[in-house]
């Protein structure tokens, strides 16, 4: 690979302002619709096998009636030092030059080492073939593959939208900028708690927000260097 074009590659990152998150779960619904994420069902969910590329964690603080509810959307953190990557024996998960933690479904042999090594539990295994009751399979997104049985799946930062945005920027003969790429969760967030963009570009919104005093990363102490940055909630 050449040095120069890679240096210019965008580095995708997301900033989530927890002060704005109302826990409405619109992002979860949008993600399911966009990425053909199957509905595991009640029985499977009870076994801890529910599939949600993004989930909204809920924390209750204090005693009734002084209860504070805090929400936190958690998806694949696209760690720069991802614990899932070195454990894959077949290189099905790897780090792309755009800072994405990519999952190649064709390569995956289903060892599930990656999910076991992920501190954020954001990887999901297809124990069964995905089934889409009539007529829901007609609503599948043609831009995204439907994962087969025996492979691991996870948030891709809506790579299909990233490719589309990059293509658009290329057609217009410019670099990617804010607004070119919006993953489904970011697009659907009613309070605009999430923003997505190129953190390598100092003018981008994510780059600006990541320098905020409230910025922190999930389980930073593990040294995974996540690409999702949370802006802490004020008291």
């Amino acid at each position: 690979m050449q040095e120069t074009p890679e240096a210019k590659k965008p580095q995708w990152a997301m900033v989530i302002d927890l002060d704005r998150c109302t826990g409405c779960e619109a992002c979860v619904v949008a993600c399911h619709a966009e990425n053909n994420v199957r509905i595991a069902g009640e029985e499977e969910a009870a076994r801890g096998r529910s599939v949600n590329w993004i989930r909204v964690e809920r924390y209750l603080e204090g005693e009734y009636p002084d209860v504070k509810v805090r929400f936190m959307p958690v998806m694949c953190q696209h760690c720069e030092e991802a614990p899932c990557e070195p454990v894959c024996p077949v290189y099905a998960t790897y780090h792309s030059d755009e800072g994405l933690n990519a999952q190649v479904y064709n390569r995956c042999v289903g060892t599930r080492y990656c999910a076991n090594n992920c501190p954020y539990t954001v990887r999901f295994f297809n124990f069964f073939p995905a089934q889409w009751p009539e007529p829901l399979w007609k609503a599948l997104n043609p831009e995204v593959s439907v994962r087969s049985r025996g492979v691991m799946e996870k948030c891709t930062f809506c790579i299909q939208r990233i490719r589309k945005g990059e293509e658009k920027a290329k057609d217009e003969g410019r670099d990617v900028r804010d607004g070119d790429v919006n993953p489904a969760c970011v697009q659907s967030c009613p309070t605009r708690a999430m923003s997505f963009g190129n953190i390598a570009d100092p003018a981008s919104e994510v780059s600006r927000l990541s320098k905020s005093g409230r910025a922190s990363r999930l389980m930073e102490e593990l040294g995974t260097k996540p690409k999702v940055i949370y802006l802490n909630r004020g008291e």
């Binding site: 690979m1 050449q2 299909q160």
Partner: peptide
């Protein structure tokens, strides 16, 4: 052609 051979260019 020295274009990307990143898996996620084609597979997603």
């Amino acid at each position: 052609k020295k274009v990307s051979v990143d898996c996620s260019i084609c597979h997603r």
